[in-house]
Every structure is written in structure tokens, then in C-alpha cells.
Amino acid sequence: MIKLLLDSSDKRLVVAIAQRDKIIDSVDYEAWQKQSEFMVLEIDNLLNKNNLTRKDIESVSVGKGPGSYTGVRISMSIAKTIAFALNIPLYTISSLALICHSFEKPSIGIMNARSKRSYVGVYDKGKAIMEDCILENSELLAYIDEHPDYLLCGDLAYLGLKGEEENIAEELLRLSVKENEEENPLGARPVYLKDSYDQGHFKTIVRKMLPSDLDAVKSIEDATFHNPYTKEQLAAELNENPVSGMYVAVVDHEVVGFIDFMITFNSSTIVQIAVKEEFKRKGIGNMLLGQMIKDCESKEDVVEFITLEVRVSNAPAIAFYKKHKFSEITIKKNYYSDGEDAIYMVRSL
């Protein structure tokens, strides 16, 4: 009988077979975004090569995350299907524990969570001494400084550090123990750690808009405005307008809002600000406006006030601006091409 060991929670693809608590064969290579194609194929190859069939498999073990969302889902879906079909135990193990060498020394398992953050888990003899969590990279570096005796594990080039080489298959085998066995394999689910949408928690970052954001911004533009800019107009704002500033708000690699403004001498104008419908009323507009104010304040020539025009019918937007200390100055008649009036609003900085 053999134990089947699987992991694709980060960039690698790991498939191994263990017999009598020893790895007898394995594959382990970088397969970023190719795990969906190759994982099942590699299992098949390995079983065939060793003259094994489904009847030889006594248990299946899998890295449950955190890590790449798609990556953890791929090996979890495979592992669950095997455990269900063969009615055998399913072991699900923290992907951070898998990159640690915690049976040698207390270890910090670290994985790049992008957006200047890391997944971090601290293990000793296979037991968590700090629960898996997500830390800002600055917090992580501070933690590392406080614990100089801990082994750093994982691919840490993104932090400018060197981590211990991983041996995922070995750790999968070592951690295939009772504590990690799923009681209800049918309902097993990966650990994502990041944003729990159910509870309305979103980690949002605001960054400068890039040309690669154009399609995403255009679709928000179309969903928001009566006379949306064409993609060419947006591209011109981004690439050619020397006084324009454009930022996007990003949740989980998805652009969910943007702001387009101009700074000319002592004044600044909001050209457009929009947030995707399902992300509204979550403070994303505040962040975008905040970024604009930060830009204004960092200019050498003092920017004294911000102006904008808003449709008289757009009550939510008017309320938003009033909350941000904008005052109604005047009505601009027939301002919009469909004849609607605009309210001209101003706030000082």
C-alpha cells in the first residue's frame, strides 16, 4: 500500500508516492499556471511507472493552502475526489508547514502573498507555534529580526532574503498524521487566509493606473457613466495628458475602481471617479479621493483647492462629496450633452 502525496499551493507541482514511510518516487518542478493540465497526468505517470493502481492507494495527503487560490483548489479537488472515490483517509496540511524544516529547528514558513504581504506560519516539530496568517512584509521583517534563531524557509528572493530549500514531499509524508486527517473529506476546503468576502472584509490597495488596466477601467467606466469615455480617450488621459493623474483601487488583483484627476497650478479637478457596483459603500471611494489629496499635497506649487462637476440627479455622489467637505458653489446649466445641469463643488485643501 502507498500514500499519495500532492501539493500545488504555490508555483510548484509536487506528486510523490510513499511506501512504509519512505518516499519511493516523486516529481517536483515549477509548473506555475500549468498545474491544472499536468497534476493528474503526473499522478498517472507515477502510478504506472511503479506498477501501481488505485487499489494500492491507502491515503491521500494534500497542501491545503494558503497560497495561489487556483493552485490550492487544483490539488484539493483532486485529493478530495480520490479520497471520496476510494473511500480512504484524506490528510490536509498547511502549505506553510510543508515548506518548513520544523523537525530540525523551529522554522518560519514564508510565501509571497503579493501586494507587499506574505503568508507566514511558524512551526516546531510539525506543530504551529504561530497560526498561519498574513502579514505586511514590514511586519514580517520585524518578526524575523526578533527571532534570529528561527530557520527561514521558502523562496524569499522577493524579500531580498535567502530561505532554506523546500522538501515538500518529505514534509507531506511526515505530517500525514491523525491531527491532519479530515473528519469530513467530502466537505474539505482549502485555506485561503486572504479576504473573506462573506464578512465583507476587503484588502484594497490603491496604485497608479497602468496601461494593462485599461480594459478593466473601461468596463467600470461603461457601467457608471452616461457618456462613457472610449478606450482611446482613457488611453490618452493615461498616456498623453501631462497634467492628469490616474489611480486604480485593486482587490485581489481585480481593478474595482478608479480616479482620474488633473492638477493645474493651484487647483485640482476630479474628472472621473467610479467604483464597481458590488464594491460600493466599502470605503474605496474614500481611498481614491485620499490618494488624490496626497498627490496634491506633495506638489511643489501649493494646490489650494479641488473642484468638480456632478450631475444634479446624482444624489449618492453629491452626498459623498459633501461628506468630504466639498461645498456647492453654483449650478452650471446644460452642462452635460444630454442637457442635464451640473452642480459645481469646491473644497479647499
Binding site: 478530495k80 475526489t81 479520497a83 467530502l186 468576502y197 457596483e277
Partner: peptide, 23 residues
């Protein structure tokens, strides 16, 4: 509640449900 399908959430639910549906 999102007024449309959220791809990430849909993928998570598929992973949870798949073996239950098979059974």
C-alpha cells in the same frame, strides 16, 4: 447579494461541493 456571479467565490463553492455532488 453581489448582483452577479463573483468568479472567486463561485470557484471556492465548486471546490467545496464537488464530491458531495458526485456522491
Amino acid at each position: 447579494k453581489f448582483g452577479g456571479v463573483m468568479p472567486e467565490i463561485a470557484s471556492r463553492l465548486h471546490t467545496e461541493n464537488i464530491t458531495v455532488c458526485l456522491k
